[in-house]
Structure formats: C-alpha cells, structure tokens
Amino acid sequence: MLRSRLVAVASLAVLTLTLSGCVRLGVEVELKPDDTAVSSVVLAIEDRYLDQTGQSPDDVIDTLTEGQGDPAQDAARTEDFQQDGYTGTRYVYPEEKIGGVGARVGWPIKVVRKGGDYVVSGTLDLTEQGLGSRGGASVDDLSVTVDITFPGTVKDSNGTIDGNSVRWEPTVGEAVEISARGSAVAPMDGSADEAAGASEVVTLPVVPEWMVLALGLSGLVILLLIGVIVWQAMLRVRDRRPEVATGPPFPGQQVPQPTPARPAPQPYGAAKSPYGAAPPHPQEQATPPDPSRPPSFPPGY
C-alpha cells in the first residue's frame, strides 16, 4: 500500500537525515467537477543537504525508498520538482473517484460532495508513533505539506487559502486535523451552478470610453452626410423650375417695342373725337367714302 510506503519513507528520513538534512513529503490533490480527483505525492530533498553531501536527489530518494517499494510503480507519470529550496520528484497518479483519495495518497483524507461543494476532512498523525519512528530519532528534519485544489472558490478552511487552493503545513510530531469546504463547480460551468442552487448572474460587458466617443463621432458624421445629400437634392429641384425674367435683358438682347395704337378713321362729316377719348368699336366705325362717288346729302349717307 502507498500509505505504508510513505510512512516508511518518512520514518527512514527521520533516522537517516537527523541533524544533517531535510526531506519534504508533499501530498497534492486536485479535485475535478465530475466527482473525480488527481492525486500526487512529492518526495524532495533540501538543496542545502545535497550541496553538503554532493548527492543527487534521486540517490537520496532511492536510499529512502530502498526496501519500501517504488513510489513510481503505480504512478501515471513522474515530474521533476524544485520549489522552496527543495529538489526531487513528483509522482502523479491516475484520476479516480473522490472516495479513493485517502487510500491513494496514503493519508486518512476524506472528500465528500454536498450539493455544489466538496467537503474535505481528515487527521494527519505525524507523531513519532504515527510515523513509526524509533526512539532517539528526530522529527525536526521532516517537512510535510498538504495541498488541495478545488474547482471553484474556497469557502472555509483551517489551512492557508490561496485562490482555489488550500495548503496545510502541519507540525511534525503532532496529530493535526484538516478541514476545508469549497465549490465543486468550475466558474464557467453554468449547469453545475444550477444544480447547486446558485443563481445565475449576467454581467454586461463594459464599453470602453474610446468606443463611446468613436460611436458618437460616427453618428455625427452620418448626420452631416445626410444633410449634405438633402441640400444638394433641393438645389437640383430648384434649378429645374422655369424662372420668370424680371431683370434687365442680357447684353445684346433686343426688347420688342409696343406698337402704337392707330386712331380709327373718322366718318366723313363726323365730329372729331375729343382728346383722349377711346376709339370707337370696330363695328361702329364707318366705311371710308368712295372718292369716285358723288357726295351725298346730308353728308354721311
């Protein structure tokens, strides 16, 4: 079992590296929204100890795990680990149901789902009895970390919260309880939010100020173009209407003069019309006398 391997490694590290080095034993659990989890175990050696002894991390880990089984036996893959002054190996195990997390990492860690949340609990017995150490061994040179990452926001924990993750750094030599509650729903998973009874919040996009100004100027330009088009159309309509010439004639243009009225011939012997009198009606005008005709008496007949 992996648990027996880890406990044996921790105990051997306490005995082997007492007062001269430090081993980090890390447990990492990444919870997924579909009630599964990916678990990892980290075995790393302090860089200071490696510099003092001239050993490589693999050499020290091989010494610690000798006769205890290979931690990479059940791993899906291994990765190089270097962090916080430690160098070693991360053993990543296959994805499995959340109920098997404790058995996978070798610690009594329990993960259950309640509605839209994951609830983590457990007790880490890091006493000498719990680690199986023998008398005279020091536990000061063993460092233990537990990291659990939730799909969503961490709501409550007795560990150190960093984003969606919680870290515990329990004191070796004591029995430490861990607890955490976090969202089992990824932030972009709306269907899971509904299953958890969460209300959907619609966030409207924020329009940048420069875009508002650009839209305003574009609208103003469009209005100006429409005004110019209407103004040109009105000019074309006005140019097509006939105009009445009321001003002076163009140069070289002759203006016809009105024909003066001719006075109607007066019948023979009739009294002359007074000045300014209107001419007689054409039907009232007498026929001019025939010169070859002798005068009649009285005149006009």
Rank of each mutant, 00 (worst) to 15 (best):
G269I: 06
D62T: 13
P151D: 04
D62C: 12
A76R: 08
V144K: 00
T203L: 15
P251M: 04
I178Q: 00
D162V: 06
Y118H: 03
Y301R: 04
R238K: 02
D59A: 15
C22S: 05
T145R: 14
E128K: 06
V101W: 01
I109Q: 01
L126N: 07
V101S: 01
P94C: 15
V119T: 01
E128W: 00
V9C: 04
A278P: 00
C22R: 04
R90Q: 07
V221M: 15
V120L: 15
I161K: 10
R3Y: 09
I226M: 02
P170C: 11
S191C: 01
P187I: 06
I222Y: 08
P298D: 13
Y86F: 14
I109D: 00
E284S: 15
T18D: 11
P265T: 11
G247L: 06
P267G: 15
D70M: 08
Q52E: 12
G88S: 09
E96M: 15
V146S: 01
A264Y: 00
T287E: 06
L17Q: 04
D47G: 13
T87Y: 02
D58G: 10
W168I: 05
G173L: 11
T53G: 10
D189T: 05
G21M: 09
P265L: 09
S191M: 09
E169F: 09
P249I: 11
S218K: 02
Q266N: 05
Q129P: 00
V60C: 01
P256F: 01
G100D: 12
G99L: 02
Q52W: 14
L142F: 05
